[in-house]
């Protein structure tokens, strides 16, 4: 399969993730959309790695996964902290509380 197919697939996934992250109001769903963006990148990395016959990109993918896991650990803790205070994970509530 030509590499363009992978390119278009992962760009589509990336755009879905990006639109979701910008439009959804639920913090958990926004976070899932960001993970989708990272996974789109992973897919493209592996496709390019195969194209160039170069293992460096696959190593990079492992690092992305590890860092994403670290981010999940911190991010979910922050969301839980927020939920305990306002009993909601809606991002709009934050803006309303500010004033």
């Amino acid at each position: 399969m030509p590499v363009q197919y992978y390119l278009f697939l992962s760009l589509a996934l990336f755009c879905i993730g990006m639109m979701g992250a910008m439009m959804r109001r639920n913090a958990i769903i926004v976070f899932m959309c960001i993970e989708l963006m990272l996974n789109a990148v992973n897919l493209l990395m592996v496709a390019f790695s195969k194209m160039y016959n170069d293992a460096a990109a696959q190593i990079f993918v492992f690092f992305i996964m590890v860092v994403a896991a670290a981010e999940v650990a911190v991010g979910l803790a922050i969301i839980v902290m927020m939920y305990r205070k306002v009993h909601s994970v809606d991002i709009n509530i934050l803006n309303r509380l500010k004033h």
């Binding site: 993730g17 992250a21 963006m37 990272l38 990148v41 992305i64 922050i78």
Partner: peptide, 18 residues
């Protein structure tokens, strides 16, 4: 602040990686 910074930071990391 923490939640906002986290969501924005993770989002920009996605863009950086792309």
């Amino acid at each position: 602040a923490s939640l906002k910074y986290f969501l924005m930071g993770a989002f920009s990391t996605g863009i950086l990686l792309m």
